[in-house]
Write a protein that binds this DNA or RNA. Structure first.
Lengths: 186, 186
DNA sequence: CCTATCATGTAATCCGTTACATGATTAT
DNA sequence: ATAATCATGTAACGGATTACATGATAGG
């Protein structure tokens, strides 16, 4: 049995198999697209290779369909469930980074107004999409996905505010105080 | 001359070479750690391999020190500067994803209170660190880094609020409305 | 002097992306 | 029927992380 390192991708596969039970890579792809993929997406090819990797290390079982397409079916093993539990119960995590391509451009001197003009509608759209999902969520959806979605909405709102303030142009607050500030009163 | 694809890593190297002029990989490492690395960090090994890649494609020049350590010195070429400008002037960017390991755990059922207990001090510390940097920033620092830092502060604040509200336990707002809501008045 | 840390790099591994392929459904 | 899209995979490539290594500098 091969030793492998479990990556976030691994836990996504394990977690989805727990939620959905035995699944094909294609089913996993659909699941990712409709849920966790909103804040952590995967290429479809990884949903073929990762379960194979996990199978080689005993975290999931691999079964070939008998009928027609002979697709591959994956399911959690006890070991897989244990690994998932252990991960889930450990509150320690790697520090996340923002890694916003738009921030990178801004950092290196892109024009804030031009950047904002492109970013604002994108974040508006994303925000609207998330809010629609939230408003259409059936009551059966678990807390976890609900909370994650909430964070996504908050983040989009914050990004939107950021770019909107940049677009207003006057980011005086970002410059050190100078004589240009009108003195109130007196 | 080899063709290469320019990645975010490439633009970080090009951008820093523009800001700092001719530099060694180690100097780049220091620059990253103190600036852009706060939201987009790189392994030090990449600051050796990436300039080499860029040199092979003509975006930077590579020079060997004569004296002592014979370190490698890199500098922007006209082609490198042009690529940087083109990138910077194009407001289109790939969509960023949150990719928060903590959100992933939450999504898959980790205990919100336990997660919050670990996340809150981490975000408090990060926030304090960013605010200290902002307050100590010399007036000479350009707008870009200033704005990026501002976004970092906003993001940390938002994450902090998120986890604090989760920790308070009452996330009723996330559940669909039910009879449990006390009817005000009447 | 010896040890720890800084400075400087190379090599191997591996995950993730991209490209390639093809059979099955659905739409026109 | 034919074209388009969905479903289902494999293969190649490359960038990023990790591990390995060693000379210089500073601290005890």
């Amino acid at each position: 049995m091969q030793e492998i390192r479990l990556t976030p991708t691994s836990y996504i596969v394990l977690g989805l198999l727990e939620m959905a039970g035995e699944s094909t890579p294609y089913a996993l792809k659909q699941l990712v697209a409709g849920s966790v993929g909103h804040f952590w997406s995967l290429q479809h090819a990884q949903l073929y290779s990762e379960p194979e990797r996990l199978a080689a290390a005993g975290y999931v079982t691999e079964k070939l369909e008998r009928t027609g397409r002979r697709r591959k079916l994956y399911a959690l093993t006890a070991r897989g469930r244990a690994a998932l539990d252990e991960w889930r119960q450990d509150p320690a995590t790697d520090r996340a980074e923002l890694r916003e391509p738009s921030l990178l451009k801004l950092f290196f001197g892109a024009d804030p107004a031009r950047m904002a003009a492109a970013q604002i509608p994108a974040h508006r759209a994303k925000l609207a999409e998330y809010e629609a999902i939230r408003d259409g969520m059936p009551a059966s959806v678990a807390e976890g996905p609900r909370q994650a979605l909430d964070m996504g909405i908050r983040h989009e709102r914050e990004m939107l505010r950021f770019w909107e303030e940049l677009a207003e142009g006057d980011d005086a607050r970002l410059r050190p105080a100078t004589a240009q500030n009108p003195v109130p009163g007196e």
